[in-house]
Design a protein around this nucleic acid. Structure first.
Lengths: 323, 323
DNA sequence: TTGTAGGCGTTATCAC
DNA sequence: GTGATAACGCCTACAA
């Protein structure tokens, strides 16, 4: 890889002139410019980004640090973010980091490289980011809250998400609604469940939450609780539930309705009939961009949109409506 | 972010001494070393990686360029690669690039940054990588072949994969086997289908390939071809098929067997009963490491392992065996 | 034990 | 128009 100095020597000009040619700045004759550009292209000259980064004191890359890339839903959001940032001529790069210690190390590397900003999906809730890493670089956390100066948590109000799912199912005539979730603890998991429970109680309905259920356990729940709808923490779990139920001969939506959350494109592709609450990815992106521009990010206030397909069916008094 | 020069001034020593302290090299008194290290940590000193990269002429990062991160299967492999490379103390970073032009631009950036190596999942088959990008940096392509000097395509023999699926299903007593695939064209898609067809013919069986089938179309196939097994191009399609069949009241595996390919952890989590051919991710990683070490990569010769769960059931003469 | 000088590849500013 | 010179942050070699 040839450098500007070598290029200058080869063209028998100074480095300054090479620079003028490469950035087609004023103060150079068309002839020499052409000559230098021709040489540059034959030698396959490419400026070394690291050198520019040292001089300008900033880099044009934006770093997303995630705990895993094989989580479909995280990746849908990251993918959308990448598109948005590339439109703004920023290099968007992703690193995978397993635990808190490695996260802080990677974050320090980003700070040293003067990355424009770091977007993290924390491996667990409420990690504290040391202030010295964020004085020159904003940090945004998605899905899990993070503590620290210049650190912004961007998320819809997940308690609302839980309430909204209940309201939607109730508007379709459901009264016996069971919430299916996961045992691991995180903001989204506990908040959605909490929203479901408080809204159910407000409506004088009996909340019932189960986590990590096997197919047989689901059958038992059908026996004991006689639900007409399963409200699932996310699309992945909803599809898993539909598969299990159908495996046992329970029909969805004829025998029971299933509602997911996220509207993940990948998963909707697998199960096109899934009704789901759509995660507000565009609003998330707008907030991230706001932080990048130094503006105060507006909270995600919009209620999640309901994507009605047909895994949820209307009922009256617990019986299925004819259509 | 403080520099070594500023650190030197603050400690009233020269840059050389700071360097000795930071790299705890010989030729410095313990007292000054301690003093400098203390100052470094209070100021939160971090060396600028770009400066080192300019001096040493190489970077410690390894770049994966992929067309999308919301493809579950690609990401399973990328995730495994990331783990393997981080164990070797390399920074593993991922970029998303939509088309051929952007791929070449990103590749050029990697070359300019002296990345250790680039792993690409090409957006389409047989892209030619210009030789000047790969003289100092090996490029590995996964899933889709790529042309060019110092470019290595690492993949199992996908024709064999197709043959193997047939042999497995035949060993379970299946004779009427329909292959389900996609309409888009790529090496893996056409090769697996080709392997299926040639092996079926060798066994004097009638091959039948369908692509991009809706639920209703699947029912028609059941009527006309009367298959006892669906061999699906990958796990995603297999799960989609199982969902569709069960939606129509067709039982899997009681009425028909379904075989996938990949053994993707994410998808197996959704459908734990899926029988599938396991993609040889460990062997892929070994080959990538071999290229990184400058060795000639060995081809992936091992046949794919069969992960037997129970979406495939044994038959005799097209009838289901009792167990 | 410590300081100085030079260089990596690029950019910016000053002269001529 | 063009060239020289210094600077960015770090590292190595040589001198004191």
């Amino acid at each position: 890889m040839i450098s500007t100095l070598e290029l200058a020597r080869h063209c028998k000009v100074s480095q300054g002139t090479v620079d003028r040619a490469l950035h087609n700045r004023a103060g150079i004759s068309p002839a020499t410019r052409e000559r230098i550009l021709a040489a540059a292209s034959t030698f396959g000259f490419r400026p070394h980004p690291a050198a520019r980064e040292i001089i300008t004191g900033k880099s044009m890359t934006l770093h997303a640090i995630v705990p895993a890339v094989n989580n479909v839903f995280f990746m849908d959001v990251i993918h959308a973010l990448s598109e948005a940032m590339q439109e703004r001529n920023l290099q968007f790069q992703i690193s995978i980091v397993r635990d808190e210690a490695a996260l802080l190390r990677t974050l320090a590397d980003s700070a040293a490289r003067r990355h424009q900003m770091v977007i993290i999906i924390p491996p667990k809730d409420n990690i504290t980011i040391p202030a010295d890493l964020t004085i020159h670089m904003p940090v945004v956390s998605l899905f899990s809250p993070c503590l620290g100066e210049n650190v912004t948590f961007i998320s819809p109000d997940e308690v609302d998400t839980g309430r909204e799912g209940v309201d939607y199912l109730v508007s379709k005539g459901h009264r016996k609604i069971v919430f299916l979730s996961f045992t691991r603890t995180s903001y989204a998991i506990s908040a959605r469940s909490e929203g479901y429970q408080t809204r159910m109680r407000e409506l004088k309905l009996q909340p019932q939450v189960y986590s990590q259920m096997s197919g047989n356990q689901l059958l038992e729940v059908l026996e004991t609780d006689q639900p007409t709808a399963f409200f699932c923490h996310n699309d992945w779990l909803a599809i898993r539930t539909i598969l299990s139920l159908r495996e046992c001969g329970i029909r969805v939506p004829e025998d029971i309705s299933v509602l997911g959350v996220d509207n993940s494109p990948t998963l909707s592709g697998i199960c096109p009939e899934l009704t789901t609450l759509s995660y507000p990815t565009p609003a998330i992106i707008d907030s991230v961009v706001a932080v990048l521009d130094g503006a105060v990010p507006v909270g995600i206030k919009t209620p999640l949109a309901i994507i009605e397909r047909n895994s949820v069916q209307p009922r009256t008094n617990g019986k299925r409506l004819r259509r």
